[in-house]
Design a protein around this nucleic acid. Structure first.
Lengths: 265, 265
DNA sequence: GGTGGTAATTCATCAGATGACTCAATAGGG
DNA sequence: CCCTATTGAGTCATCTGATGAATTACCACC
């Protein structure tokens, strides 16, 4: 059984000659389709195709790369899965905005696929990223362009739910909706860090996997109130422009979540 | 211009019902192929297909999802681009190991595509990750299972090159080879952190983009020696089990690199 | 028993044709 | 004159069928 290192040969060997991995030996002989993937990617890297640009029609592209339409479509589909291009029936195929948020999309699937195996490792990285994001958001909370309205909105909505929680039966509490607001808060804080790459990575790592598992354990009484309190402490530190408190608050909050997940396993 | 949020609809809507994004409205009506991608992914998530398992032959899979072989192949190609499956002509299609290192592969292409726009943001995240990795590596340098031999090897080889550099003309110095050793050192330190997810993300962010730009600026005299000295300081701190020194050393080193990149633009 | 070749299996690629969808130009009515 | 509905060209989505290339396993042969 080979190491299966040649699954994305075209992508990996793009920037400069043979990369450190899959250098020369190894089986992975590039297929026709792989060449097309690399070719289109290069068109974008070299600037021949800019974000929003429309690609030539399938027939022309197939002729340009000397492949059949079927093979060309496989290549385009691969790039679409990576978030690089987008095909619209009846219209054409376009280069996406290439925003980090789009391009890290595949990472979300990766998290789903092996969360079981490396769950704790993923969470460690997530914590690292979110703590940094909280600190950055606090540092620039008074700077022009800082926008914490999304975080505030999510938190206020969640506060309303938490207040109602005391009055309704636990079974009636909409845990899923509360969890969505939870994720929205974390996402907003990531955006508020001012680093879109950081925000995109957080987005990819934060949601998804945690969602199912948290939904199970979220039925424990008092969790909503506790989460809400921790979130509010973090937001206060951020709006006050206190990076140290924001970092500690976020770290404590995420460690508590990790403890929760560990117990419920 | 639409938000282009529907490029990976099948992937995003996997784990639980409709996610926060692309919930209901929006154009992105899933294509036949998207359904197949989601279907195969679900087979893996649900455990019906484990890493290393072989998928049914194309004809059977196509029949199972009620699509033509062409559409099925597009779906498989998309999953192959994501590093989830791997097709071998004459043999079959297999689920990959699903190691983090494989699944973050697409991120490398993402970095290449928009490094121009978000270069500094990417570097900031890289620095954050590598500083943490250095700290972790130092913390567990004396723990069982810790293996710094790769880092040591890369550094010794680089030291030999740096020593020779004083004797050969600058034009004869193999900057590309030295840079590869540089990247190998950083990669080894990522692995030594003990967190494979962290190591994979570093791998995806570290190389690639920096490579071209660094190659240009690497011709400046003394850079090799300076890089070597900084690396040695970091490794010493790691082997001494001094996380604080390791973190600071790595942060200083990467900030120096960033300064270098900024100047050469 | 070991070795070589051959056949079956499987993915890779091609070719042609039809349907679905989008957009824009155009003709008609108000 | 403006607005709307129809129509047409252009483009992607999908299907069908067939051929080539690579791998594997089996079997005859030495």
């Amino acid at each position: 059984m080979t190491k299966a290192a040649g699954s994305v040969p075209a992508v990996s060997s793009l920037p400069s000659g043979p990369g450190p991995r899959e250098a020369a030996g190894e089986g992975g002989r590039a297929s026709r389709t792989d060449h097309v993937v690399a070719g289109i990617a290069r068109l974008i890297i070299d600037g021949d195709l800019a974000p929003g640009d429309r690609l030539p029609v399938e027939k022309d592209l197939a002729a340009r790369f000397d492949v059949s339409r079927g093979s060309l479509r496989e290549a385009v589909r691969a790039l679409a899965a990576l978030g690089v291009v987008e095909s619209r029936q009846g219209d054409g195929t376009y280069v996406t905005s290439l925003d980090p948020a789009l391009l890290v999309g595949p990472l979300g699937l990766a998290v789903d696929l092996q969360a079981a195996g490396h769950g704790s490792h993923i969470h460690s990285v997530r914590r690292l990223l979110e703590v940094e994001a909280a600190g950055l958001a606090a540092s620039r909370s008074r700077a022009p362009g800082a926008d914490l309205s999304d975080a505030v909105a999510a938190l206020e909505e969640a506060a309303a739910m938490a207040a109602d929680a005391a009055m309704v039966a636990d079974a009636d509490f909409d845990h899923a909706a509360f969890l969505d607001l939870d994720l929205a808060f974390h996402r907003a804080l990531g955006v508020a860090s001012g680093n879109p790459v950081l925000a995109a990575l957080i987005e990819a790592l934060a949601g998804r996997t945690a969602r199912h598992r948290l939904l199970r354990s979220a039925t424990v009484a008092g969790v909503a109130q506790r989460t809400q309190a921790e979130h509010e402490a973090i937001l206060t530190a951020v709006t006050d422009g206190d990076p140290e408190r924001a970092r500690v608050g976020m770290a404590a909050h995420l460690l508590a979540v990790e403890d929760f997940l560990r117990e419920s396993e």
